[in-house]
Amino acid sequence: MTGNLVQELLVFMLAVFVGFQLISKVPSVLHTPLMSATNAIHGVIVIGALVVCATAHGPVELTVGAAAVFLGTLNVVGGYVVTDRMLEMFRHNREQPGNRP
């Protein structure tokens, strides 16, 4: 993969730039869900964990890989579910208040 290093660095640089642009436009009302959503996004590490776990040979490698898959899945699934729960509450808010006893 070394031949792709320059290309990878370019991708990295552009992604950082896009990240800066994307986040500066999110209002502070949504900062908690935003942080939670980005938290879920770095759960993408589970893909790396799967690759490592799948190619593991010895018991040590397998343990390391399995632990990585577990932690990564926890991160990605928990992160998205909890963000969804938060954002669902914002959705209800279009109704007019005043109809409570």
Binding site: G19, F20, T38, V44
Partner: peptide
């Protein structure tokens, strides 16, 4: 991994 990770890295820095 590179793109998603660096998106989060950048956004976390801004926050």
């Amino acid at each position: 991994l590179i793109v998603a990770g660096s998106l989060v890295g950048a956004s976390g820095t801004i926050l």
